[in-house]
Amino acid sequence: MGKYILKRIGYMILTLFIIATATFFLMKLMPGSPYANQAKMTTEQIKIMDQQYGLNKPIVQQYWIYMIGLLHGDFGTSFQFNNQPVSYLIASRIGPSMQIGLQAIILGTGLGILLGAIAAIRKNTWVDTVATFFAIIGRSIPNFVFAVILQFFLAFKLGLFPIALWDGFSSSILPTIALAMAPLATTARFMRTEMVDVLNSDYIELARAKGNSPWQTVAKHALRNSLIPVVTIIGPMAVDLMVGSMVVENIFSIPGIGEQFVKSITTNDYPTIMGLTILYSTMLVVVILIVDILYGLIDPRIRLSGSEAQN
């Protein structure tokens, strides 16, 4: 297992290296000016600015400097936003994003597991129909539509929550719900399929034959066996969350990295875009790696054949 994890981390670093390199050179190809008010600047001023940002050096050298910087957690300096270091921008904005993201994933997977399990246990009853209906709605309706609907009814019409303001927990509720819909639907659907399979399996019948009540059977045998595969979809869901956070943060004016990313794009702030791209990719590969390791830890079949996985 240890060797397997090391190998995976090796691949992860390689992937990130390729992404960083690709992003860097793509940025160099970008049209458009890096300076917000370039139109008003003289050639002389631009030269000074270029020097200040190191843009006058040969591209390979710029690349080298950038990569070395990355290793130290230095993503360069933002061209916009008062010339703050990108790392500082990220640090100051990651809090709200993380809060909403984590709340959404906990709410989404938690409710999804519950909904999926109930739907499977009460398969082909009205409970199942209702759960399936919610799963379809959650999967189909785009998160930004959800966000807007929530904002309209709960915040604007009923005034239960702030419309677009970042101020503590109550302002995080609506964005969390909007973000949680997709993971909720995905989890519920996946959980239902897994649970239906498990409930049809022989070992569940054997558990019943041992004298377990239906509830005990679900709690002791069915739940764990259907939960293990659910771990595998956390990776893809994390991606959806990152994408979703950009638009949801925008709608609710949350000072997070998603909103920052959209802002950077519209203002051609290359260092910030690069930094955030690398950050998003890193988070993604790390989440996937953690999920894989977690899966190996909780599934005894993989845990003990870990040595085979190395090959």
Binding site: T15, I19, T23, L26, M30, V239, I265, Y280, I288
Partner: peptide, 19 residues
């Protein structure tokens, strides 16, 4: 495929949009 899919595809799209 692994490398492409480890970049959130929104990020790829955005890079394309900038390019």
């Amino acid at each position: 495929i692994e490398i492409i899919s480890s970049i959130p595809n929104l990020v790829i799209v955005i890079l394309m949009l900038l390019l």
